[in-house]
Amino acid sequence: MSNETRSTGGLLESGLEGLSHNFFTGTLEELVKWARRHSVMPATFGLACCAIEMMAAGGPHYDLARYGMETFRASPRQADLMIVAGRVSQKMAPVLRQIYDQMMEPKWVISMGVCASSGGMFNNYAIVQGVDQIVPVDVYAPGCPPSPETLMHAILTLHDKIKNGELTRRKGEGAGLVVEQLGPNGPVPVTLGQG
C-alpha cells in the first residue's frame, strides 16, 4: 500500500491518519474495495430506451451477473449503483433526486446514454439537459442507446474507479455541484453531496 502519497479523506483523517500506513488497515481497505467492486448492486431505475438495453445487458448474451450484478435491488436503500438509463424529464427529476437521496453511501451513478448525460437530441423544455445537474455522476456511457457492451465498459470503468478511488470519497466534499431547487420561497441554491 502506498497510502503516504494520497490524502485520505474523511474517516482516516479524523484521528486515524497514522493507521493508514499500517499493514492491517491498508489490507482492510483493499479488502473493502475488493468487496465493493465485486458486489455493485444496481437500483432498478429504468427510464426509456436505455432501460431496455440495460436489461438486455442482464440477459444471456451479456450477463451482468458475472460481476455479481444480477441482483437489481428494487429498494434504493439496498442499492449501490444508480444507472440513469434514459432521458430525465423535468417531471421525473425530483423523483430521481429523491431516489438518489434514499440510497445509502457509498453510492455511484452511471449516466447511461446521451439523453441522461446531456439531454441528447432533445434540447427542449421537457428534458433535463444532463442528469449531472441533479446528481453527481461517476461514469458517462455514450450512445443512443449505448449497447450492452458500452454499458459493461462503463461498469468496468466504475470498478476501476472504486479500486483506485478513496474509500470514503464523498464525506463532506460531494461533487461540488450547485443547482437551484425550487423551495417554497423561490429558488434555493443547493450544493450537492453535502450534509
Binding site: S89, K91, M92, V95, N123, N124, Y125, A126, P145
Partner: peptide, 29 residues
C-alpha cells in the same frame, strides 16, 4: 408524464428527413 420528452415539439424543429430520428425514440420496443 414522467418521460415526457417534448418530441412533438422537437419534431416541429426538425426537417422531414430528420423526423424519423425523432419519432423512432417514441416506441423504443
Amino acid at each position: 408524464g414522467y418521460l415526457h420528452t417534448g418530441m412533438e415539439r422537437t419534431g416541429e424543429e426538425l426537417t422531414y428527413l430528420q423526423g424519423p430520428t425523432n419519432v423512432t425514440r417514441m416506441d423504443y420496443a
